[in-house]
């Protein structure tokens, strides 16, 4: 049974900060160490509950929440990346459930996940201008340039044509 103290001790090389708040273990790390940290967490935390991103204005904070069904314990992992052209290693090979969550973060925030098997837009369409959940994305209802380009489905057809 992992405890918070043991976890932070084992993973201290990959952490930049840790605290226990309201029964949840909150870990902070940075883009270079995150992959190793998640690999260390994988055996104990078997459920990929959430993965998202917060635009704090200055930079992007990527946040993921894992749950251990055996211990009934949640852990938050967060890290900050620059607002534009942020790159992160993917976690979708560790937890398949993050495959779509990463696509969503890519779609809405423009964060690139290196090594993701199928990093396409998911909620918006092919050719959508910008990333809507960034704070500087302007929502203008009267903007007449909002035309959805003709959808060719080429990305999907290519995907399906792959063996």
């Amino acid at each position: 049974m992992t405890t918070f103290a043991q976890l932070t001790h084992d993973q201290r090389a990959h952490l930049t900060g840790s605290e226990e708040a309201g029964g949840v273990w909150c870990l902070t790390t940075d883009p270079r160490k995150v992959r190793a940290l998640l690999e260390g967490l994988r055996p104990a935390f078997d459920y990929p509950e959430d993965l998202t991103c917060i635009d704090t204005g200055g930079e992007l904070r990527v946040f993921c929440r894992l749950w251990s069904t055996a211990q009934r314990q949640a852990v938050h992992v967060s890290l900050t990346i620059p607002r534009s052209r942020g790159h992160l290693p993917t976690a979708s090979d560790l937890w398949r459930g993050y495959e779509w969550q990463e696509r969503e973060v890519f779609d809405l925030f423009g964060v690139q996940f290196d090594g993701h098997p199928d990093l396409r837009r998911i909620l918006t369409w092919e050719g959508f201008p910008g990333h809507p959940l960034l704070k500087d994305f302007v929502v203008d209802n009267d903007d007449s340039s909002w035309e959805i380009p003709e959808q060719t489905d080429q990305e999907i057809i290519d995907l399906l044509s792959r063996e």
Partner: peptide, 16 residues
């Protein structure tokens, strides 16, 4: 709020 994130069950269920 700065950010409200909804983690929806169907989204994850559909991905499988």
């Amino acid at each position: 709020p700065v950010r409200v994130r909804f983690r929806s069950p169907s989204f994850a269920n559909l991905s499988a």
